[in-house]
Design a protein around this nucleic acid. Structure first.
Lengths: 187, 187
DNA sequence: AAAACGAGGACCTATATTGTCTGCGTTATG
DNA sequence: CATAACGCAGACAATATAGGTCCTCGTTTT
């Protein structure tokens, strides 16, 4: 229905939270804060790591940090990392499929790029150039201008408290408990 | 996988055949010439008629003709008619979904357009402007420069012969025959 | 040793796209 | 005036993709 879906939206919003944070944030923290399905987020962020946008650290106290300064991360690079270089239009070379071509299409018909395809490619290029102009720093500035500084502080301490409460009740813990209960019931 | 699919491709190629033709062409003729599923084409072209791009004439010897000169029909208008004004990105207002907002999002958070959405809208606008620049006349020129005039004449006479052979073996006829055979077998 | 991470794969489901088939009204033609 | 060739509309079916869940594994801190 749209070229870019919820995955891209989730990831871009998550990246904004990472701009001002020094310590690594986990995919679970990012998902819970934004009320986004956490298991889904966990599948998205590794793509950004492979694209060199995020740096991941494993193990307890691990998580994600921007791998580059925010002004060097364009919206285009994020979109490409998540959606995988989607094109606007997928040419099927209809021009070579004419019933009048008895034995395959002649050379003049399939030479160069199809005119329709070319028009689509120009539009796609214009779109990509526009997406390349905006960086994470630009987006972050917009948020910071809108939000009261008090809120941004609250957010920082929310992440901080999360680090402290790792030991207490977490989503994972509950799942593991449920699992061990099941294991005991099985045999 | 792509924003614009096969429907758009089929229709744009079909419109090119209509540029130089005076007599109405049926969806079946257009489909058969380009080896495109004809029943599918028959569902597409009425959309162009509603959008004011094609003029349809019903009944025998009916078919489609361009409703406007080719230089007034942009690729954008065709795409919109077929795909229905698809947007590049569908904003779900993630910014209003923060766990820190205890009783709904504050005004400052949801004021104006989301920064991420705005960037996508700029890209979409750039794409649409580019698609608006190309017209059917432009595309038709490209084809006419490539194709030998002999081929274009052959195509015209193919359409002409089709009109003559209406009475003879057509796809529809075979289907109707099959149907009556089945009807006889049923009781 | 256990808890909290990331990575990755199997799996499920809802929806959009692509296509087929039917019936109905309209128009030219013999 | 019957019929063939049209456009139009809607009911399906098949397939692909996006979105989402769950489970297992290895790593790192405490």
């Amino acid at each position: 229905m749209a070229l870019y879906g919820a995955s891209t939206e989730y990831v871009l919003h998550s990246l904004l939270w990472l701009v001002d944070t020094k310590e690594p944030l986990s995919s679970l923290d990012l998902a819970d804060l934004q009320e986004i399905p956490s298991a889904f987020m966990a599948k998205l962020l590794p793509k950004l790591e492979k694209a060199g946008i995020l740096h991941a650290s494993e193990g307890m106290k691990g998580g994600y940090v921007l791998a580059k300064p925010a002004w060097e991360i364009s919206v285009l690079s994020v979109v490409d990392a998540i959606e995988g270089r989607k094109s606007l239009f997928n040419c099927q070379e209809i021009r070579g499929r004419c019933a009048l071509y008895s034995e395959g299409p002649p050379r003049w018909a399939t030479q160069g790029v199809c005119g329709i395809h070319a028009a689509m490619l120009r539009a796609e290029q214009a779109m990509r150039e526009e997406l390349a102009k905006t960086t994470l720093a630009d987006l972050s500035d917009i948020v910071r201008k809108k939000a009261p500084s008090q809120f941004l502080d609250e957010a920082q301490s929310w992440f901080g408290n999360r680090v402290k409460t790792r030991r207490e009740g977490s989503v994972r813990k509950n799942k593991i408990l449920k699992k061990s209960v099941n294991n005991k019931e099985l045999p």
